[in-house]
């Protein structure tokens, strides 16, 4: 009689512990999913910030670079296109065409920003100018913030993916339909390189 009671008690305690364990796994998955979702919105915030900053920067640069109107106008054009593409994507995130246009215009903006920064190489005097230096710093930082927010998103997606692929998390993840999330890719690696500023 006593043994049955003990075995039964141990069994019940075991079941409780097991359920607690399952719950903690489930909560862990939710935490990881929240982190990556949160870092996605950060990209959005940084892109928005960049859209707001670019016209100001170009306006300032105009004062010093009268002859480079073309490049400056190209930057503004690319900015406006990327901006409207971003708006279109935001309105309908599931639209594959909008996503493609967004990636393309994003790439074009990055490239034109790259050539904008390369312009300063032609003006050695300008590079020593305090205002230009501050401007370059602002540009570098902005581009960094955009790419770091993407990187942070990819890192957290990776942590999440690994988290739900491991055993036994994978079983719970499958049960609640938590699937792998693809990482963001930059279309052209060279384009990314072009944006890097050398001091």
């Amino acid at each position: 009689m006593n043994t049955i009671l003990v075995v039964g008690l141990v069994f019940i305690v075991g079941i409780f512990l097991f359920i607690g364990y399952l719950i903690s796994i489930y909560n862990g998955i939710i935490r990881l999913a929240n982190i990556y979702k949160n870092s996605f919105s950060q990209i959005d915030v940084q892109l928005q910030r960049r859209f707001e900053l670019i016209p100001n920067l170009v306006e300032t640069a105009k004062k010093y670079m009268e002859h480079e109107k073309e490049t400056l106008e190209a930057v503004i054009l690319a900015r406006n296109q990327a901006h409207s593409a971003a708006q279109a994507l935001k309105a309908d995130p599931s639209n594959a065409g909008a996503a493609k246009t967004f990636n393309k215009t994003e790439g074009a903006l990055g490239a034109s920003m790259g050539s904008f920064m390369a312009l300063f190489e032609n003006y050695p005097d300008l590079k020593a100018n305090e205002n230009i230096k501050a401007l370059m710093e602002e540009l570098t930082s902005t581009e960094n913030k955009v790419s770091f927010s993407r990187q942070n998103y990819n890192d957290s997606v990776m942590t999440y993916n690994i988290g739900i692929q491991q055993f036994p998390q994978s079983i719970i993840a499958n049960m609640f339909q938590y699937r792998d999330v693809p990482q963001l890719e930059v279309e052209d690696v060279k384009m990314r390189e072009a944006v890097k500023v050398q001091f």
Binding site: I35, N38, K145, F148
Partner: peptide, 18 residues
């Protein structure tokens, strides 16, 4: 300028690390 850059870098790393 140096401080401005320093503050920018702190912001960038805050984004990168979350």
């Amino acid at each position: 300028f140096i401080f401005e850059q320093y503050l920018n870098i702190v912001e960038e790393m805050s984004i990168a690390s979350g």
